[in-house]
Design a protein around this nucleic acid. Sequence first.
RNA 1: GGGCCGUUAACUCAGACGGUAGAGUAUCUGCCUUUUAAGCAGAGAGUCGCGUGUUCGAUCCACGCACGGCCCA
Length: 513
Amino acid sequence: MADKAEQNTKEPQAGTPRILEDNSLIRQRRKKAAEIKGMGVSLFPNKFRPRDKIGDIVARYGRMDSNQLESRAEDKCSIAGRIMALRSFGKAAFVKLQDRSGSLQIHVQRDGVGQDKYQVFKKLEVGDIIGVSGPLFRTRTQELTLRAENIILITKSFRPLPEKFHGLTDVEARYRQRYLDLIMNQSTRDIFLARAAIVKTIRRRLEERGFLEVETPMMQVIPGGATARPFETYHNALGMKLYLRVAPELYLKRLIVGGMERVYELNRNFRNEGISVRHNPEFTMLEFYQAYATYEDLMVFTEELVGDCAKEVKGSLKIEYQGREIDLSPPWRNLDFRTSLLEIGGVPPDVLFDVQAALGLSRELGGVHKAGDGLGKALNKIFEVLVEPELWQPTFITGFPKEISPLSRTCDHDPDVVDRFEFFIAGRETGNGFSELNDPDDQLERFQGQQAERAAGDDEAQFMDLDYVRALEFGMPPTAGEGIGIDRLVMLLTDQPSIREVILFPLLRPEQG
RNA sequence: GGGCCGUUAACUCAGACGGUAGAGUAUCUGCCUUUUAAGCAGAGAGUCGCGUGUUCGAUCCACGCACGGCCCA
């Protein structure tokens, strides 16, 4: 009997924690839970062990017709999952059960599971996690269905799931409550399955080439390896300021000095910058270093590596991103930095060698410059605004100015340029590689130059790292190294416009002011 | 940091150019042993993001704030 007075009450049911928001639906679900408990049934048992995955069942039996399934009625399946839909007919019901591999319809009949279990079952709701076992059959409409012979509540759900048709679409809710997003949206699950596949492919390819996976400090006394502002933190016992790393680069190259010759790290970096569709304060980067190689060797490897990832998750080197086709087939376009400014950016030739003209143009385009900024920084800003967005098809840019590359080896026949490339896909920088600077005296001078820039007010300039110079003095074999932004690669290969869609828990401000 | 847009029931969304709000789904009650956005009948559910101001009266207007989205820096 419905007790409407009780339905209306604002009083929480027994056991409702007051620290979380409450509503009538939650109260109703807790009431049902109490009733189930009152029947002597545990709400959170941990005994049921599913023997099967729904995906496997569908793969194995999905093509069998009614008669074939009938003849295999002794093949009992045993699965566990969450109730995503429930259609009840009084003495029978259909349940849509979802596990990590897929979903399957369950038919529960009073005469199939027995009066007692059916009484409990009638109290179950969408969102509850149950275990069921029984044979498969096909319904009148030919849907593969498990006939429940046994059914058990595994976990009671106190909160209502979003509506079945529209699901959860509110972007903020999807990021904050990613668990709900994952329950409700197959497309979200697919993104993170693809991400895992991409990371796995990268590791496999690197392992095949003899790279060793290592882990270097994320908390660093001297943040180095990239031009970026670091996060600061503090170690209480040591009484010491620490930085979250902006890159693992300098540590990985110390390992090259140490004789490891081929190393990689695929992990998080932290940069204290604004948030955008391309930037999250913490992001995942692959960095790898190979001794006795040049940046040109890595360009070839990059084409292979990115291509392998595309084949793995898209099955093709021709992919579509945000409605436009991208062809990852090698060889990729290769353009000199200055040439790209002229041909793609439409920059007047005199700007390329005239600091004042370059700074002027950069400022016109919105660039902010300090007194000490030279040609390299100005041209780089111009590049970012005029050229980068145009590089839709995969493109290597080479011939970068030395001024913006303090860790790269100087080009043998142009002292203003370094042996470096960046590659761009879909108008975004996706990776950066270079022949490493292994002349310790040159490196020391570059650091000193960075120190001067820092003194002049550039808080993105790199810190002096004397131990790194000391390591180079022991001798680092000629080495090429590269970093690839994993989040951006995943965006590309899952056709996502925002980096937040490919990060499980993107950084958001707290919900309550 | 700036601009634009958004925030209404658990979810997805309407809405009134000021008079304290609706739909669908979900939920509750009843019926129903092959449904699949099940169906039929009935019912309940809201601090209209937060605050201040204007007003007889604000969810709606104004200002501020919070959170989010997109664009720009």
